[in-house]
Design a protein around this nucleic acid. Structure first.
Lengths: 189, 189
DNA sequence: GTCTATACCTGGATAGAC
DNA sequence: GTCTATCCAGGTATAGAC
């Protein structure tokens, strides 16, 4: 992986999030990286190839973040709260551009894009990780359902917080989610 | 409003939902309505004007749907369930294209489009209507918070149900929402 | 590995005949 | 009110010099 190639992926990663995949042109990316448009094709055959590279880095970055949370959080509930709180940590971006995972998935769904399933794997990373945390809390039977509940709750807050540009609401919902989590029964077998 | 103009709006409404606003071209709409591209400009000055007309019809249609639910549902809880159940009623569309309201809002947010706020008014219609239903249940203080909770919950289920193409999950969450609603305290003063 | 030049297409939008 | 013809900007992608 050359430095230029990496710069392209980083710029595309950011622009695909803020502007959307289709709305982002080679000229946009070239403007950030300071290369000519023709130079892209030495590194990537098509725009779709750039998208695949972006999704790959997002998968890797997410995986690393989950590992970090695993090390930082003393208890499973602490770790799950690390996830919940990204709504506020990344609020300045979310209020303008929504959730990076959800918005890419819905865009690719409408485009009926070949990488649609690949993009949803970021959700799967969170889902499996959350499921593990709930399993550690003793929720062996409903761990996956709880994981999906946390995922969808935060996703909904991201979408509506974005639509209404309402940080207070987002803050309130984060508190509600944490309270809900704290009140969950824990079996320490 | 001429018949042609109405046909354009109807076709655009459908295509903006299924393909996204920006991805839909005049040629796409013209193909459905069977008119020439040049003919658009007799009815609309710009593509943005078509979007505004589409949003207007969606606002009107939503308003009408809420009136219908008001008449059909015997109790506020029944009416709120009418809202919750559209996730399953429209599932065949949602699994492929997501929630029409949420996906348009996030797309326009990324485009930083002038009609962004106008699009989010569809959410507001649901919000105010749900708030009224919860008020009727005696939840005077937290009616709006409850309305937002129902909105975000369903929105999250739409996004994740779409990403994973999982109807069983959507069905399960609809049941959960209905159970949650049934267990809500009601004060009949 | 990076550039310029360019091909080729599709997008929204306009002009003017009918 | 609808059409054809056309403009022009911008998109992806290619060719080939350096």
């Amino acid at each position: 992986m050359t430095a230029t190639r990496q710069q392209i992926v980083e710029a595309a990663d950011d622009l695909f999030y803020r502007q959307g995949f289709e709305h982002t042109s080679f000229a946009d990316i070239a403007g950030v990286v300071n290369i000519s448009r023709g130079n892209f094709y030495h590194h990537f055959k098509t725009k779709d190839d750039i998208l695949d590279a972006v999704i790959k880095t997002r998968l890797g970055r997410t995986q690393q973040m989950l590992v970090d949370w695993e090390e930082e959080g003393a208890t499973p509930k602490d770790r799950i709260k690390s996830y919940i709180k990204i709504l506020l940590t990344n609020w300045t971006m979310i209020k303008d551009y929504g959730c990076p995972v959800g918005t890419l998935c819905t865009e690719l769904a409408k485009l009926n894009h070949a990488s649609r399933d690949e993009a949803s794997k970021v959700f799967t990373l969170f889902r499996v990780w959350l499921r593990n945390q709930f399993s550690l809390l003793g929720h062996t039977g409903d761990a996956d359902a709880l994981a999906m509940q946390v995922l969808s709750w935060s996703q909904g807050v991201a979408t509506l917080g974005n639509a209404f540009n309402d940080r207070k609401y987002a803050k309130q919902e984060v508190d509600n989610m944490c309270d809900w989590l704290d009140s969950l029964p824990v079996s320490t077998t």
